[in-house]
C-alpha cells in the first residue's frame, strides 16, 4: 500500500484563470478511481500535472513520492483523450517504441490483445479506423505494468462491445500495487468498476467517497448523484 498520488495545496492558473484551486488529494495503490466533472472543471489540468505536462503554479504534487519527471514517467501509463499515434508508423513499430522506452512494457501481452481484436502488426496506423486507433492506444497503455494508469475518456469514442472489453481489461489488469485513474463522462458505464469517486468542479474537489458510500448515503447511483450535483 503506497501513496501513488499526493497533491498538497496544488494550484494551477493560466492568465489569471484558476484551473485548480488549492487541491489536496491522496490516492493509494490498489484502487480504481473515477475522476468525474464537467468540462472545464480542472480534470484535464490535474491529469496533465500528474503526467508532468504542466508544472504547478503553487503547491506540490508527488507521484509515488517524487515530483513528476523522468522517474514518475517510468511508472505512469497515460492514455490521453486524443489520438497520440503518429500516422506513418505501423502497429509493430509503435509497439517497438513502447518496448524500447518502457521497461515495464509487456510485449507478448500486447500482441496477444491486438490479435484478439483482429489488428495486424504490419498495418499502418493511419489506415486504422477511429475505433481501432483507440483500441490500439488502450492496448499499448494497458500492456504496461505500470504503478499508475491515467485513462482520459477511455470509452467515449468506442462502441458498447468495445466498452465492455475496455472495462474487463481494466479489471483483469488489476494489481494491488497499482491504481487506475479514470476520467470520464460516461459514469453509468464505469461506476461499478470504481472503488472511489472524485467529483471536481471549478478547480475544487467537491466530493471524494467510495461508490458504495455514495449509493448508501444518497440512495442513488453515482451517475444520478452527478447529474444532481452538477445540474445547470
Amino acid at each position: 500500500m503506497s501513496e501513488l498520488i499526493r497533491c498538497e495545496h496544488l494550484t494551477k492558473s493560466y492568465n489569471g484563470l484558476i484551473a485548480l484551486n488549492n487541491i489536496d488529494l491522496s490516492v493509494e495503490s490498489g484502487k480504481i478511481i473515477g475522476l468525474l466533472g464537467p468540462n472545464g472543471s480542472g480534470k484535464t489540468t490535474l491529469i496533465k500535472l500528474i503526467n508532468g505536462l504542466l508544472t504547478p503554479t503553487s503547491g506540490e504534487i508527488f507521484i509515488n513520492g517524487t515530483r513528476p519527471g523522468v522517474e514518475s514517467k517510468k511508472i505512469v501509463a497515460y492514455l490521453p483523450d486524443n489520438n497520440f499515434l503518429n500516422s506513418w508508423m505501423t502497429v509493430e513499430q509503435i509497439v517497438d517504441l513502447y518496448t524500447d522506452f518502457y521497461a515495464d512494457f509487456r510485449r507478448e501481452l500486447c500482441f496477444e490483445m491486438l490479435s484478439r481484436l483482429g489488428i495486424s502488426p504490419s498495418v499502418k496506423l493511419k489506415t486504422l479506423s477511429k475505433g481501432n486507433k483507440e483500441k490500439v492506444c488502450l492496448i499499448l497503455v494497458m500492456s504496461r505494468k505500470a504503478r499508475l494508469y491515467v485513462l482520459d475518456e477511455p470509452i467515449a469514442g468506442v462502441d458498447p462491445a468495445t466498452r465492455d472489453y475496455v472495462i474487463s481489461t481494466i479489471i483483469n489488469n488489476y494489481d494491488p500495487e497499482a491504481s487506475v485513474l479514470i476520467s470520464t463522462h460516461l459514469i453509468s458505464d464505469v461506476e461499478q468498476v470504481l472503488d472511489d469517486v472524485i467529483f471536481i468542479n471549478n478547480g475544487n474537489i467537491v466530493l471524494h467517497k467510495t461508490v458504495d458510500e455514495i449509493r448508501q448515503e444518497s440512495g442513488k447511483s453515482v451517475d444520478a448523484l452527478f447529474r444532481e450535483v452538477f445540474r445547470w
Binding site: 523522468v70 514517467k73 505512469v76 497515460y78 486524443n82 497520440f84 522506452f101 518502457y102
Partner: peptide, 18 residues
C-alpha cells in the same frame, strides 16, 4: 515541432526522457 508540440507530444513528452 510535430513530434513534441502536436498530438505526438502526448506520447513524446510522457516518455521517461528529459
Amino acid at each position: 515541432y510535430k513530434n513534441l508540440f502536436t498530438n505526438e507530444g502526448y506520447l513524446s513528452m510522457t516518455l521517461p526522457v528529459t
